[in-house]
């Protein structure tokens, strides 16, 4: 890709404490162009979740640099990381993690409200996003009243509510059946594409990974291109 990089990771390392502390990330490098959508695969325990936590500013690496839109995340303090996460990073989880007592609309508006956007404005934006994920009619429904696919579409809308530069998706189809899972991934891809956002998809499913621009495999603490990749 020719566009300016959205995410630049250089020599990222992370070892867990303890006598048998394992080095899960070992000089990892990655560059993600703006608007690029990359899938990362790997065996269980290979460090995928650690990588997502570090990229989300939830966990600090031992060494290496991370720049999101040129901002050196590795130099930010906790408050700076929280601000960055609130404004430039979105998350989609395997277990959806909508707050059960908030309506679909309020769940989507929540990140905006946490960032100080007035309630009315946040709810209007949430309703617009619900229309885009074809759930405009279910705005006031509680998560418990929605199907699994609907819940994950709401989760996708929530991840996009604050127009993030990067969306981190952790096994987003793991709790969905095959067809619905693919439709959610397509939706995520489309919405990201329309906004010029980048995406990092962690998955065990090759079929899910194939929806990405490229597929990388996390092995021995480093990312390598998937050998079966064709495009």
């Amino acid at each position: 890709m020719d566009s300016a990089p959205c995410l630049q990771i250089q020599a990222l390392s992370k070892q867990y404490a303890g006598p048998q502390g394992r080095r899960v990330l070992d000089g990892l490098d990655l560059q993600l162009a703006a608007g690029e959508y990359v899938a990362i695969m790997g065996a269980s325990g290979s460090g995928k979740s650690t990588l997502l936590n570090v990229l989300g500013g939830l966990l600090r690496a031992d060494s290496g640099t991370i720049r999101l839109e040129g901002v050196p995340m590795h130099n930010l303090d906790d408050a700076g990381l929280t601000r960055l996460r609130r404004r430039r990073i979105g998350f989609v989880f395997q277990a959806f993690h909508l707050l059960p007592h908030l309506s679909a609309c309020m769940n989507i508006a929540l990140p905006l409200q946490l960032d100080g956007v007035p309630r009315g404005q946040a709810l209007a934006r949430a309703r617009a996003l619900l229309e885009q994920v074809a759930l405009g009619e279910r705005a006031d429904a509680l998560p418990g009243e929605l199907s699994g696919g609907e819940v994950q579409r709401v989760a996708v809308a929530r991840a996009l509510a604050h127009e993030p530069a990067l969306v981190l998706a952790d096994e987003p189809t793991g709790n969905l059946d095959h067809g619905i899972g693919l439709r959610v991934l397509t939706l995520l891809r489309e919405q990201l594409g329309s906004r010029g956002g980048s995406g990092l998809l962690v998955t065990h499913s090759l079929e899910a990974a194939r929806t990405a621009d490229r597929i990388l495999v996390l092995q021995d603490g480093r990312l390598q291109p998937w050998e079966g990749q064709t495009g």
Binding site: D78, T82, R86, F91, L114
Partner: peptide, 16 residues
């Protein structure tokens, strides 16, 4: 804990 974890992911500060 999970609810608070989600809020952290959504950008809520510890103070919030």
């Amino acid at each position: 804990r999970r609810e608070f974890g989600v809020l952290v992911h959504l950008g809520a500060s510890r103070g919030q």
